[in-house]
Simulated assay, not measured.
Amino acid sequence: MTLQKNRPSGGPAHWDDVEIGDAVHLRRGGRIEYAGRVDNRTADGAVVWVLSDGGRRQLFHVADGFELTVADPEGARHADN
């Protein structure tokens, strides 16, 4: 599942369906460039912070050109969220 929505105004897509704790992949040019779990996000879905398995926290903005997908749509959310 791809978590980008195009705004009716033609503005940038937003990742407003992703939730904290979701396991995600960020792709650019068809390649996964970053993977981890959503650590936080803005209310409008324009910015997400992703924490990799190695503990690195990275900020991504929709304008950065990444496609954000849930890595495991059926089991992506943590039970403790």
Rank of each mutant, 00 (worst) to 15 (best):
71 A>K: 03
11 G>D: 15
21 G>S: 14
40 N>I: 12
15 W>I: 06
73 P>L: 01
2 T>C: 11
71 A>Y: 00
54 G>P: 00
72 D>G: 01
35 A>C: 09
50 V>M: 10
74 E>P: 12
44 D>H: 04
75 G>L: 12
71 A>Q: 02
15 W>M: 15
4 Q>I: 09
74 E>Q: 02
35 A>S: 14
53 D>K: 00
4 Q>M: 15
43 A>F: 05
66 F>L: 08
19 E>Q: 14
33 E>L: 07
8 P>A: 09
30 G>K: 05
15 W>K: 08
55 G>K: 07
33 E>R: 04
51 L>K: 06
15 W>L: 13
58 Q>E: 08
32 I>C: 06
16 D>M: 10
72 D>N: 07
14 H>R: 15
50 V>P: 00
26 L>E: 03
64 D>E: 06
5 K>R: 13
57 R>T: 03
11 G>R: 10
6 N>P: 14
17 D>A: 08
28 R>T: 06
73 P>M: 02
28 R>G: 08
47 V>N: 09
78 H>G: 14
49 W>Q: 06
43 A>W: 04
37 R>S: 10
33 E>C: 07
25 H>D: 13
38 V>L: 02
9 S>M: 00
30 G>L: 08
67 E>I: 01
7 R>I: 15
49 W>M: 13
16 D>W: 02
21 G>A: 07
19 E>C: 13
74 E>V: 12
25 H>S: 12
12 P>S: 11
21 G>Y: 03
27 R>F: 01
63 A>Q: 07
66 F>D: 02
6 N>W: 15
48 V>S: 00
63 A>H: 00
7 R>D: 15
8 P>R: 06
37 R>M: 12
40 N>V: 11
52 S>V: 01
35 A>D: 15
32 I>E: 09
67 E>R: 02
36 G>M: 07
40 N>P: 07
58 Q>C: 04
12 P>V: 05
18 V>P: 01
69 T>I: 09
29 G>H: 00
26 L>M: 03
9 S>I: 09
21 G>C: 13
57 R>L: 13
31 R>I: 10
28 R>A: 03
11 G>S: 12
17 D>M: 06
64 D>G: 00
68 L>R: 00
61 H>E: 15
25 H>Y: 08
55 G>D: 10
64 D>P: 02
76 A>F: 10
1 M>F: 13
